[in-house]
């Protein structure tokens, strides 16, 4: 065990490292006898892990066969994809009027995201309090509101968009309602978790000063959770800008309609331009909301 210490001073030259390796290998039998535990034979958990891995791998391979993957198909598809990428250069909207159309649709997308998020928050607020254990002690109310939120959350934004298009017709209004519905579930859950982790002491303080239950919520809980809510809201606005770009695919307004149209008509230069436009917008909104978020959270170190 004393040989490596002298050679480790040889620095990181290749020969030094090689010598280290030889020394280490020479020491291996010694180590094996001395630290028998570290070289233990196969354990039951190890076998189970290997079996699980083999099963997942088998599913992986049969899955590809099941879904009709084949080498020839992949090559042909990748060849096509390569052609598309070449055709995308240079990204351009074509005409000025189309550029303005795209920008307007982008504005619509951001507006859908903003309005949808705010409406969702307004709807989620009462559910958040109902689903929080420390506000409503009734287990049935608690359970029912949780399950309702779960159900709403289980339906994808795109499905909500499709349903609302059926009800209110094509257009951005359906998009707003879709974002509102799918986010009520998610925000309600987050709100209730924030409320449950709020500090109990302010509530007790209000109650001991003679405040009622409503006052306890208003002055004991709300000031603690509002900054958290605001930061979550901004985060959802961010992620909704992404989802609002795609709900246009089913006709619920925004830039997605143009995107799917340009893809289906194989106008690759326009597609590339649209994608860049979307990515830039999302990046700008990300940066803005990150700054706002840190400002809100930083100004009042409250419960998280």
């Amino acid at each position: 065990m004393n040989a490596p210490s002298s050679s480790s001073l040889a620095g990181h030259t290749a020969s030094g490292v090689n010598r280290l390796r030889e020394d280490a290998l020479r020491e291996l039998p010694h180590l094996r006898t001395r630290y028998a535990d570290a070289f233990r034979p196969v354990t039951r958990n190890g076998i189970l892990g290997v079996m699980l891995a083999v099963g997942l791998l088998a599913l992986f391979i049969t899955g590809f066969a099941e879904l009709g993957f084949s080498f020839a198909k992949m090559i042909a598809g990748l060849d096509q994809l390569g052609k598309f990428v070449i055709l995308m250069w240079p990204p351009t909207p074509g005409t000025m009027s189309r550029f303005l159309l795209f920008v307007h649709a982008l504005g619509e997308t951001v507006a859908i995201a903003a309005l949808g998020t705010v409406l969702a928050a307004i709807l989620a607020l009462p559910f958040g309090f109902l689903a929080a254990k420390n506000v409503v002690a009734n287990r049935i109310v608690h359970f029912l509101s949780r399950r309702l939120l779960d159900t709403v959350r289980g339906v994808d934004t795109l499905i909500w968009a499709l349903l609302w298009v059926n009800v209110v017709g094509l257009g951005p209004f359906a998009g707003v309602l879709a974002i509102m519905c799918s986010d009520t579930g998610a925000l309600g859950k987050l709100f209730s978790e924030a409320i449950e982790t709020a500090n109990r002491r302010p509530v007790e303080g209000v109650l001991s000063a003679g405040g009622g239950r409503l006052a306890a919520v208003r002055f004991g809980i709300l000031p603690q959770v509002l900054p958290v809510f605001a930061s979550q809201l901004l985060y959802y606005f961010e992620s909704n800008t992404r989802s609002a770009t795609i709900i246009g695919i089913v006709g619920a307004g925004g830039i997605g309609l143009h995107l799917s149209e340009q893809i289906r008509t194989l106008e690759w230069q326009h597609v590339a331009f649209l994608v860049i436009l979307i990515l830039a917008t999302v990046a700008v909104i990300d940066a803005l909301s990150t700054r706002l978020r840190s400002a809100i959270i930083g100004s009042r170190p409250a419960a998280t």
């Binding site: 198909k73 992949m74 598809g77 994809l81 992404r242 989802s243 770009t245 990515l279």
Partner: peptide, 24 residues
């Protein structure tokens, strides 16, 4: 991760044809 998966799917459907492959 910035481009939504459904946009990739739209493009892949044209390149690889309809079916589960573009989805995967």
């Amino acid at each position: 991760r910035s481009v939504p998966e459904i946009v990739f799917a739209l493009v892949f459907v044209i390149a690889f044809g309809l079916g589960p492959i573009p989805g995967v």
